[in-house]
Protein backbone atom coordinates (compact mmCIF):
# COMPACT_ATOMS: atom_id res chain seq x y z
CA UNK A 1 0.00 0.00 0.00
CA UNK A 2 1.40 3.37 -0.95
CA UNK A 3 2.22 6.04 1.58
CA UNK A 4 -0.44 8.36 0.22
CA UNK A 5 -3.14 5.73 0.66
CA UNK A 6 -2.03 5.12 4.24
CA UNK A 7 -2.07 8.83 5.05
CA UNK A 8 -5.44 9.28 3.38
CA UNK A 9 -6.93 6.38 5.37
CA UNK A 10 -5.52 7.72 8.62
CA UNK A 11 -6.84 11.20 7.86
CA UNK A 12 -10.25 9.75 7.01
CA UNK A 13 -10.29 7.89 10.33
CA UNK A 14 -9.34 11.08 12.18
CA UNK A 15 -12.20 12.90 10.46
CA UNK A 16 -14.62 10.06 11.16
CA UNK A 17 -13.64 9.74 14.82
CA UNK A 18 -13.92 13.51 15.29
CA UNK A 19 -17.39 13.46 13.79
CA UNK A 20 -18.46 10.57 16.03
CA UNK A 21 -17.16 12.48 19.05
CA UNK A 22 -18.92 15.70 17.99
CA UNK A 23 -22.17 13.80 17.49
CA UNK A 24 -21.80 12.29 20.97
CA UNK A 25 -21.76 15.76 22.50
CA UNK A 26 -24.35 17.23 20.14
CA UNK A 27 -25.41 20.10 22.45
CA UNK A 28 -21.83 21.31 22.54
CA UNK A 29 -21.64 20.94 18.77
CA UNK A 30 -24.84 22.93 18.23
CA UNK A 31 -23.87 25.71 20.67
CA UNK A 32 -20.45 25.95 19.06
CA UNK A 33 -21.97 26.26 15.58
CA UNK A 34 -24.55 28.82 16.71
CA UNK A 35 -22.03 31.01 18.54
CA UNK A 36 -19.75 30.97 15.48
CA UNK A 37 -22.62 31.97 13.21
CA UNK A 38 -23.66 34.70 15.65
CA UNK A 39 -20.12 36.11 15.49
CA UNK A 40 -20.30 36.17 11.67
CA UNK A 41 -23.73 37.81 11.76
CA UNK A 42 -22.57 40.53 14.17
CA UNK A 43 -19.60 41.28 11.93
CA UNK A 44 -21.84 41.56 8.89
CA UNK A 45 -24.12 43.96 10.80
CA UNK A 46 -21.10 45.99 11.93
CA UNK A 47 -19.80 46.41 8.38
CA UNK A 48 -23.32 47.20 7.13
CA UNK A 49 -23.33 50.03 9.65
CA UNK A 50 -19.90 51.20 8.52
CA UNK A 51 -21.03 51.31 4.90
CA UNK A 52 -23.97 53.50 5.85
CA UNK A 53 -21.41 56.28 6.30
CA UNK A 54 -19.02 55.56 3.43
CA UNK A 55 -18.91 53.87 0.07
CA UNK A 56 -15.42 52.45 0.27
CA UNK A 57 -12.56 51.62 2.65
CA UNK A 58 -10.24 54.57 2.00
CA UNK A 59 -10.14 56.78 -1.08
CA UNK A 60 -9.27 55.20 -4.42
CA UNK A 61 -8.36 51.87 -2.84
CA UNK A 62 -10.86 49.91 -4.90
CA UNK A 63 -12.42 48.37 -1.80
CA UNK A 64 -16.04 49.30 -2.26
CA UNK A 65 -18.89 47.78 -0.29
CA UNK A 66 -19.15 44.47 -2.16
CA UNK A 67 -15.43 44.17 -2.82
CA UNK A 68 -14.95 44.50 0.91
CA UNK A 69 -17.62 41.88 1.62
CA UNK A 70 -15.76 39.53 -0.71
CA UNK A 71 -12.61 40.33 1.28
CA UNK A 72 -14.39 39.77 4.59
CA UNK A 73 -15.84 36.44 3.44
CA UNK A 74 -12.40 35.32 2.23
CA UNK A 75 -11.11 35.99 5.74
CA UNK A 76 -13.98 33.92 7.12
CA UNK A 77 -13.21 31.04 4.80
CA UNK A 78 -9.46 31.00 5.56
CA UNK A 79 -10.13 31.22 9.30
CA UNK A 80 -12.78 28.52 9.19
CA UNK A 81 -10.43 26.15 7.34
CA UNK A 82 -7.54 26.86 9.72
CA UNK A 83 -9.78 26.31 12.72
CA UNK A 84 -11.43 23.24 11.28
CA UNK A 85 -8.22 21.39 10.55
CA UNK A 86 -5.47 22.82 12.72
CA UNK A 87 -6.38 25.17 15.55
CA UNK A 88 -7.64 22.57 18.06
CA UNK A 89 -4.80 20.22 17.19
CA UNK A 90 -2.04 22.77 17.62
CA UNK A 91 -3.59 23.99 20.84
CA UNK A 92 -3.65 20.40 22.06
CA UNK A 93 -0.06 19.96 20.86
CA UNK A 94 1.14 22.44 23.49
CA UNK A 95 -0.66 20.40 26.15
CA UNK A 96 0.80 17.15 24.82
CA UNK A 97 4.30 18.59 25.17
CA UNK A 98 3.67 19.85 28.70
CA UNK A 99 2.01 16.68 29.97
CA UNK A 100 4.15 14.14 28.11
CA UNK A 101 1.20 12.90 26.04
CA UNK A 102 3.35 13.43 22.96
CA UNK A 103 5.22 10.23 23.85
CA UNK A 104 2.62 8.03 22.17
CA UNK A 105 2.56 10.05 18.96
CA UNK A 106 6.33 9.69 18.64
CA UNK A 107 5.95 5.91 18.63
CA UNK A 108 3.72 5.67 15.60
CA UNK A 109 5.19 4.72 12.20
CA UNK A 110 3.78 7.78 10.50
CA UNK A 111 4.92 11.39 10.22
CA UNK A 112 4.57 12.94 13.68
CA UNK A 113 3.72 16.40 12.34
CA UNK A 114 0.90 14.91 10.29
CA UNK A 115 -0.46 13.11 13.37
CA UNK A 116 -0.26 16.19 15.57
CA UNK A 117 -1.72 18.58 13.00
CA UNK A 118 -4.76 16.60 11.86
CA UNK A 119 -5.82 14.38 14.76
CA UNK A 120 -9.06 16.18 15.38
CA UNK A 121 -11.28 17.87 12.81
CA UNK A 122 -13.44 20.64 14.24
CA UNK A 123 -16.61 19.97 12.32
CA UNK A 124 -18.48 22.86 13.95
CA UNK A 125 -16.29 25.24 11.92
CA UNK A 126 -18.26 24.08 8.86
CA UNK A 127 -20.94 26.61 9.84
CA UNK A 128 -18.44 29.47 9.50
CA UNK A 129 -17.15 28.02 6.25
CA UNK A 130 -20.67 27.85 4.85
CA UNK A 131 -21.40 31.41 6.04
CA UNK A 132 -18.19 32.62 4.38
CA UNK A 133 -19.10 30.98 1.07
CA UNK A 134 -22.63 32.41 1.15
CA UNK A 135 -21.37 35.96 1.81
CA UNK A 136 -18.73 35.54 -0.93
CA UNK A 137 -21.23 34.31 -3.54
CA UNK A 138 -23.66 37.10 -2.63
CA UNK A 139 -20.92 39.75 -2.91
CA UNK A 140 -19.70 38.44 -6.26
CA UNK A 141 -23.21 38.56 -7.73
CA UNK A 142 -23.45 42.22 -6.72
CA UNK A 143 -20.23 43.16 -8.52
CA UNK A 144 -20.26 44.25 -12.22
CA UNK A 145 -18.30 41.20 -13.45
CA UNK A 146 -18.53 37.60 -12.37
CA UNK A 147 -15.14 35.90 -11.95
CA UNK A 148 -13.91 33.50 -14.63
CA UNK A 149 -12.91 29.89 -14.13
CA UNK A 150 -9.20 30.79 -13.98
CA UNK A 151 -9.87 33.32 -11.26
CA UNK A 152 -11.80 30.76 -9.21
CA UNK A 153 -8.97 28.24 -9.53
CA UNK A 154 -6.39 30.85 -8.50
CA UNK A 155 -8.64 31.86 -5.61
CA UNK A 156 -8.66 28.24 -4.40
CA UNK A 157 -4.87 27.97 -4.71
CA UNK A 158 -4.30 31.15 -2.71
CA UNK A 159 -6.85 30.16 -0.09
CA UNK A 160 -4.74 27.04 0.47
CA UNK A 161 -1.61 29.21 0.60
CA UNK A 162 -3.27 31.43 3.21
CA UNK A 163 -4.26 28.47 5.36
CA UNK A 164 -0.72 27.07 4.99
CA UNK A 165 0.81 30.35 6.21
CA UNK A 166 -1.54 30.46 9.21
CA UNK A 167 -0.75 26.80 9.91
CA UNK A 168 3.00 27.41 9.73
CA UNK A 169 2.70 30.18 12.30
CA UNK A 170 0.59 28.01 14.58
CA UNK A 171 2.82 24.95 14.47
CA UNK A 172 5.93 27.08 15.01
CA UNK A 173 4.41 28.67 18.07
CA UNK A 174 3.11 25.30 19.31
CA UNK A 175 6.50 23.62 18.85
CA UNK A 176 8.20 26.39 20.81
CA UNK A 177 6.50 24.97 23.91
CA UNK A 178 9.30 22.38 23.96
CA UNK A 179 11.74 25.15 24.91
CA UNK A 180 9.34 27.33 26.87
CA UNK A 181 7.84 24.56 28.99
CA UNK A 182 4.48 26.26 29.08
CA UNK A 183 2.81 28.17 26.30
CA UNK A 184 -0.75 29.28 26.76
CA UNK A 185 -0.61 32.19 24.36
CA UNK A 186 -1.68 30.40 21.21
CA UNK A 187 -5.26 31.69 21.16
CA UNK A 188 -4.11 35.22 22.08
CA UNK A 189 -1.52 35.13 19.32
CA UNK A 190 -4.11 33.89 16.87
CA UNK A 191 -6.44 36.75 17.77
CA UNK A 192 -3.72 39.41 17.35
CA UNK A 193 -2.50 38.00 14.07
CA UNK A 194 -5.90 37.55 12.51
CA UNK A 195 -6.83 41.06 13.63
CA UNK A 196 -4.02 42.45 11.45
CA UNK A 197 -4.86 40.26 8.50
CA UNK A 198 -8.59 41.01 8.67
CA UNK A 199 -8.34 44.27 6.72
CA UNK A 200 -7.11 45.24 3.25
CA UNK A 201 -3.40 46.07 3.17
CA UNK A 202 -4.19 49.51 1.73
CA UNK A 203 -5.35 50.75 5.15
CA UNK A 204 -1.77 50.51 6.44
CA UNK A 205 -0.47 53.88 5.30
CA UNK A 206 1.39 56.76 6.89
CA UNK A 207 4.32 56.68 9.30
CA UNK A 208 2.78 54.03 11.53
CA UNK A 209 1.01 52.01 8.88
CA UNK A 210 3.84 51.55 6.38
CA UNK A 211 6.21 49.72 8.77
CA UNK A 212 3.31 47.49 9.84
CA UNK A 213 2.48 46.71 6.23
CA UNK A 214 6.11 45.87 5.52
CA UNK A 215 6.49 43.68 8.61
CA UNK A 216 3.24 41.78 8.12
CA UNK A 217 3.91 41.27 4.43
CA UNK A 218 7.58 40.31 4.39
CA UNK A 219 8.54 39.22 7.91
CA UNK A 220 5.41 37.53 9.27
CA UNK A 221 3.43 37.37 6.03
CA UNK A 222 -0.07 37.36 7.47
CA UNK A 223 -1.26 40.31 5.40
CA UNK A 224 -1.07 38.27 2.22
CA UNK A 225 -3.18 35.44 3.68
CA UNK A 226 -6.53 37.10 2.93
CA UNK A 227 -5.44 39.99 0.72
CA UNK A 228 -4.05 37.95 -2.18
CA UNK A 229 -7.00 35.62 -2.85
CA UNK A 230 -9.47 38.47 -2.27
CA UNK A 231 -7.60 40.82 -4.64
CA UNK A 232 -7.36 38.17 -7.32
CA UNK A 233 -11.09 37.62 -7.09
CA UNK A 234 -12.41 41.18 -7.04
CA UNK A 235 -9.58 43.31 -8.47
CA UNK A 236 -7.86 40.94 -10.90
CA UNK A 237 -6.44 43.49 -13.30
CA UNK A 238 -4.37 45.53 -10.90
CA UNK A 239 -0.69 45.81 -11.67
CA UNK A 240 0.51 44.98 -8.14
CA UNK A 241 -1.32 41.65 -8.08
CA UNK A 242 1.17 39.80 -10.27
CA UNK A 243 4.23 40.21 -8.09
CA UNK A 244 2.19 39.91 -4.89
CA UNK A 245 0.79 36.59 -6.09
CA UNK A 246 4.29 35.38 -6.95
CA UNK A 247 5.58 36.53 -3.60
CA UNK A 248 2.66 34.76 -1.84
CA UNK A 249 3.74 31.43 -3.34
CA UNK A 250 7.30 32.03 -2.22
CA UNK A 251 6.20 33.14 1.26
CA UNK A 252 4.02 30.04 1.61
CA UNK A 253 6.87 27.70 0.67
CA UNK A 254 9.27 29.52 3.00
CA UNK A 255 6.77 29.51 5.90
CA UNK A 256 6.03 25.80 5.55
CA UNK A 257 9.73 24.91 5.24
CA UNK A 258 10.72 27.07 8.22
CA UNK A 259 7.94 25.68 10.40
CA UNK A 260 8.94 22.12 9.49
CA UNK A 261 12.52 22.89 10.50
CA UNK A 262 11.43 24.36 13.84
CA UNK A 263 9.11 21.40 14.44
CA UNK A 264 11.87 18.83 13.85
CA UNK A 265 14.28 20.79 16.05
CA UNK A 266 11.65 20.87 18.78
CA UNK A 267 11.05 17.11 18.56
CA UNK A 268 14.78 16.47 18.89
CA UNK A 269 14.79 18.53 22.08
CA UNK A 270 11.60 16.99 23.51
CA UNK A 271 12.11 15.99 27.16
CA UNK A 272 8.84 14.20 27.86
CA UNK A 273 7.28 14.58 31.30
CA UNK A 274 7.88 12.29 34.21
CA UNK A 275 5.26 9.62 34.72
Amino acid sequence: MSNITTYWRVFRTFARNSLIRDMTFRSNFIIDSISSLAWVFLNVVLYLQVFRFTNSIGDHTGWGRYEFYAFFSTGLIVNALAQMFFMTNIDEFTDLIRTGGLDFLLLKPIDTQFMISLRRIEWSSLSNLAAGIIVLVYSMTRLPHLPGMGQCVLYGVYLICGVAIYYSLMITLGASTVWMGRNLTLYDFWFYITTFSRYPMEIYTGQLGRPLRFAFTFIIPVLIVVNIPARLMVRPLESQNGWLAGFALLATAASVAASRWVFLKALAGYRSASS
Binding site: M1, V10, T13, F14, N17, I20, R21, T24
Partner: peptide, 18 residues
Protein backbone atom coordinates in the same frame (compact mmCIF):
# COMPACT_ATOMS: atom_id res chain seq x y z
CA UNK B 1 -9.47 8.40 22.32
CA UNK B 2 -11.12 9.23 25.62
CA UNK B 3 -14.64 9.93 24.36
CA UNK B 4 -14.86 7.11 21.83
CA UNK B 5 -15.17 3.34 22.15
CA UNK B 6 -11.82 1.55 22.14
CA UNK B 7 -12.86 -0.17 18.88
CA UNK B 8 -12.54 3.20 17.09
CA UNK B 9 -8.99 3.71 18.37
CA UNK B 10 -8.12 0.17 17.31
CA UNK B 11 -9.41 0.95 13.80
CA UNK B 12 -7.11 3.98 13.72
CA UNK B 13 -4.18 1.77 14.72
CA UNK B 14 -5.06 -0.60 11.91
CA UNK B 15 -4.64 2.19 9.38
CA UNK B 16 -1.53 3.67 11.00
CA UNK B 17 0.24 0.30 11.04
CA UNK B 18 -1.26 -0.81 7.73
Amino acid sequence: WWDLPAAESFRLHQHIYN
